[in-house]
Design a protein around this nucleic acid. Structure first.
Lengths: 331, 331
DNA sequence: ACGCGATCTGCACGGCTGTGCAGCAATGGG
DNA sequence: CCCATTGCTGCACAGCCGTGCAGATCGCGT
């Protein structure tokens, strides 16, 4: 037999199986002496409670799904790491659903989570189909969504609009008028929101904004978008990039392919403050998002939801702070 | 009742619970008509097999632990992502144990895995204490270790020594004689192996190697190591960096703080080929490791171990290929 | 029409745990 | 010294599933 059962521990300790069970159940009533005997026997045999059987009874396990596409890229990597760490610290078991592009894989993974009676699911990114939310709803799976406004779930949102407005404003106060924004064609809601808010704020102040899109919101996307911006028309003197990776691509094109100077010819502001933003080659001014803070909020929502399942949906906001570096000096 | 049980499905379909069970059990014998009825009823009620109960019987779940420290950094991020994706595709449930520095957290997480009857554990990095291996052994948990030579577990190893020898050789064939290597004081076995093999190969060819260490094997470590190399003594004309992040830090110091030219004054070779190595600002010559290939080997070892639990420990090798870029041109 | 084989179905059991309930010992107070 | 109360313990049951085994059904050949 590979695993030790409570029965065997009970036998060795000379008590009933119930006593063993109670020893390992929080808040159960066991005499200290009995508890001691049980713990000793358990230690000797290498016993661990069978969480599966425990879960069958409680109809719940401690699994928490973490759904993300491309969890190795940019800010998402840091968010994923922070979240899994926070979950482990909470005593949960983070299951990383690294969903490829296909919808079936995601659905299959979701079924596994439900089959294992996962406690909740946190969605970091990607655009799950409607059926995903429906299935979760139907099985009473609490959902926490980060970075998009899903009314049927608890959510953690960054102040994308506010920050993007600030970016437009700070560009204009320093006399930059030839504005541009870089986003992507496969934009997540966050990326799109940043782009739109920046354009809206600039327009409201009577300033046109050129718009360029990469295919994805990554370095290659930044390369392509910057090339299209500088290939024709009047060069912008200030660019807001919807995330840092796009900014890195843009900076490399601006400096290496068009031999322009940053920030003299062109100023840039990014978003996220991934560690690379502080690298000497970049020195990117950007809006800092703290992954640990976001993860903490998500876990807090989880806790709250578990305590009061019928409370109305909550929404936590985290406000990004601008960090000035060489790509756009403090005014 | 939040969850639907097989009993309810059986009732709706007008069959026994056994029939339901058999419908969802691979290889069980059910009449097509019955199966159809069951599937229809299950669909209507939104039934999913309770994997917990199933696991109790089989004494095994489909959880696979993935242990990593700092899974958001560098190559490890890509490896983690590739591994989780491969595991999901296999039908397993990847549990990301993002262990902080503390040993207790790791042990607690391991106990949870054992409590949930996880199928196996894959160790990506970090140096688990001896008790970790002991506990796994004792509970019959198959272990797959990536990137270190643990004799008590199946393992996937990169050809660190061979590649590092190649690096030394290719430097010397192009006439570079003032060699240096950058590693770190908190080196993983892989990092240390690369450093040692490089030094050994150069020494064997009668060439001295200056050695510099950062605190960690990351960008900041590269900065510090390069500063110490160039602050005094004769400047090296070729540096082998134990991973790409170290190389990026070194390149930035060399160019920005010492105004030297790469590769004219100093050539660099890195290790891993993370995407940043191809960025225009770096263009780092490096040894390519394919995270998907490594993940595939790990999963293969898992499969094999599950089929023949008593087979001797296996070791898979993946050979890194050098990719030439601007930091050291093809000879 | 009948017998036989094959296929499927239902029953009952086993796997491991948490917990209500009743009983037991111990303890303290009168 | 006796009784009430308290605090533990053990029994038995519930929770959901997979599967061996015996019985039922069905098809088919003669």
């Amino acid at each position: 037999m590979r695993f030790v059962s409570a029965e065997q521990v009970a036998q060795l300790a000379g008590v009933s199986r119930s006593a063993v069970s109670r020893t390992f159940t929080e808040g159960a009533s066991v005499a200290p002496a009995t508890r001691e005997k049980v713990l000793k026997a358990a230690e000797e045999l290498g016993y661990h409670v069978n969480d599966l059987a425990r879960g069958v009874l409680a109809n719940q396990s401690r699994l928490v799904g973490v759904v993300a596409t491309k969890p190795e890229i940019g800010f998402r990597a840091h968010l994923t790491a922070a979240l899994t760490k926070a979950l482990i610290r909470r005593g949960s078991i983070p299951v990383l659903i690294n969903t490829g592009e296909t919808e079936e894989e995601l659905l299959a993974a979701q079924k596994m989570l439900i089959g294992h009676r996962a406690e909740a699911t946190v969605i970091l990114s990607g655009s799950p189909p409607e059926s995903f939310f429906e299935l979760a709803q139907r099985n009473g799976q609490p959902l926490v969504v980060i970075g998009r406004s899903e009314p049927d779930a608890d959510r953690v949102l960054a102040g994308n609009a506010e920050a993007s407005r600030d970016a437009a404003e700070v560009f204009m106060t320093t006399g930059r008028r030839r504005l541009a924004v870089i986003g992507s064609r496969s934009a997540t809601p966050s990326i799109a929101e940043r782009e739109n808010a920046f354009v809206a704020a600039a327009n409201a102040a009577g300033c046109e904004v050129r718009i360029a899109h990469g295919r994805d919101s990554d370095y290659d996307g930044g390369l392509a978008a910057a090339r299209s911006l500088f290939a024709e028309g009047e060069w912008p003197d200030a660019i807001f990039c919807a995330n840092d990776l796009l900014a890195f691509g843009a900076m490399d094109v601006i400096r290496q392919e068009f031999s322009l100077s940053i920030p003299d010819d062109v100023a840039l502001i990014g978003f996220d403050d991934v560690p690379e933003a502080a690298w000497l080659s970049y020195g990117l001014t950007t809006f800092r998002q703290d992954p640990a803070a976001i993860a903490a909020r998500a876990v807090m929502l989880l806790d709250r939801r578990q305590q009061n399942p019928d409370e109305p949906r909550a929404c936590e906001r985290v406000i990004p702070q601008i960090v000035f570096r060489k790509s756009f000096l403090h005014p």
